[in-house]
């Protein structure tokens, strides 16, 4: 793993991997969305509104996965002082927040026809909204630290503490009576017909590739920022010496 710690080596890999992930991710998402809109069968009770499943569920998983990534990267940064881990955590926050917001919006659109309500202060819905606020807090905190100066350990600690919300989101429908149904898919089990299950898993692969591509692109941008700043600082010092 420490081989990737070298930013130079990371950049040579990221340079070709970024477009590959972005393009393949978008292609798979386009294909599964096409299937979802035009070829998936209507659901027995929910009818046509089930088609939003292929966006709602992958964005929900990746919204939660994004914070898990922040927590793991923060742990690596705090313990091993891995130079790229902090950047990876910062780079995961924006796509994570966007995917969480997409999950909330699609869930609200789905809730109106399926449950008869746009929003309810239910355990699952509320804990997902808290996740969005955690992302926004993390983004402001890490930006403040990088702009105003300060220890990058502060957002890392925030990232670790916030991970407590992830199991709460997952178990909210099991611990508390909830309007949201319990998970359809768990380890080795599925209560979903194949017509819904396999395209959903494929869509999740597509969204994951897109997520990875965005993270790499943002890490490259953050590294370029750091390099540009270092160069400016050297120039300023050189001018002061002369």
């Amino acid at each position: 793993m420490h081989g990737f710690a070298n930013p130079k080596r990371f950049l040579t890999i990221a340079r070709w991997l970024t477009p590959l992930l972005l393009v393949s991710g978008l292609a798979i998402i386009a294909a599964t969305s096409w299937y979802g809109l035009f070829h998936a069968p209507a659901e027995r009770l929910q009818g046509e509104s089930v088609r939003i499943l292929f966006i709602h569920v992958p964005t929900a998983w990746l919204g939660m996965g994004g914070w898990s990534a922040i927590a793991i990267a923060s742990l690596v940064e705090l313990v091993w002082r891995h130079p790229l881990a902090g950047l990876a955590a910062r780079a995961s926050a924006v796509p994570g927040a966007i995917f969480t917001a997409l999950c909330l919006v699609t869930g609200s659109l789905w809730g109106r026809p399926a449950w008869g309500t746009w929003w309810e202060w239910d355990g699952r819905l509320t804990s997902m909204l808290v996740l969005l606020f955690l992302y926004l807090g993390y983004i402001s905190l890490s930006q403040a630290v990088s702009r105003e100066g300060g220890s990058s350990r502060i957002p890392a600690i925030f990232g670790l503490v916030g991970v407590v919300n992830i199991p709460i989101i997952h178990y909210s429908v099991l611990w508390w009576n909830s309007i949201h149904q319990p998970p359809s898919i768990s380890m080795g089990k599925s209560a979903m017909s194949g017509e819904f299950l396999w395209p959903l898993l494929l869509a999740t692969v597509g969204f994951s590739l897109l997520f990875g591509g965005i993270v790499l692109a943002r890490m490259r941008a953050l590294l370029a920022d750091i390099q540009a700043e270092a160069r400016l600082r050297r120039k300023a010092l050189g001018a002061a010496d002369a």
Binding site: A42, A114, I179, Q181, A191, S193
Partner: peptide, 10 residues
Amino acid sequence: LAKHDENYVP
């Protein structure tokens, strides 16, 4: 409010 279960069937 209607509550649906976790089963998805065409």
